[in-house]
């Protein structure tokens, strides 16, 4: 299922069937909105209309490495260790 791959979810076959059916139902139920708003209605992405919020360009110390290294699933040489990037085996 393409969506599962896009969302990085390794779904079982029965999950795929189950979700496909439920997503169909949910989308069907919210179909009603598809032709409510006219073209000239602007979309709202932010509920409160505030603009131009910035911080000054001042560097400050961040976290101590020990504070987050302990929570890393794998750690080596002061860096996060992650599995190989490419799909073909080494």
């Amino acid at each position: 299922m393409h969506l599962g791959r896009l969302a990085r979810l390794e779904l079982t076959e029965s999950e795929v069937d189950h979700y496909t059916e439920q997503l169909g139902q949910i989308l069907g139920a919210i179909e009603a909105i598809s032709d409510v708003a006219a073209d000239d209605i602007p979309p709202t992405s932010h509920p409160i209309p505030v603009v131009n919020v910035y911080r000054e360009d001042v560097a400050l110390p961040g976290l101590d490495r020990e504070d987050f290294a302990v929570g890393a699933p794998a750690w080596e040489d002061d860096r996060f260790l992650v599995p190989r990037i490419l799909d073909e085996p080494a």
Binding site: D57, A59, G62, F68, D77, F80
Partner: peptide, 20 residues
């Protein structure tokens, strides 16, 4: 001086994972 969305140093290099 600092990063795009946080106040960490934007200086090149540094010990790994120290400007975070």
């Amino acid at each position: 001086n600092s990063k795009m969305f946080c106040s960490c140093s934007a200086e090149f290099g540094g010990d790994p994972n120290t400007h975070v």
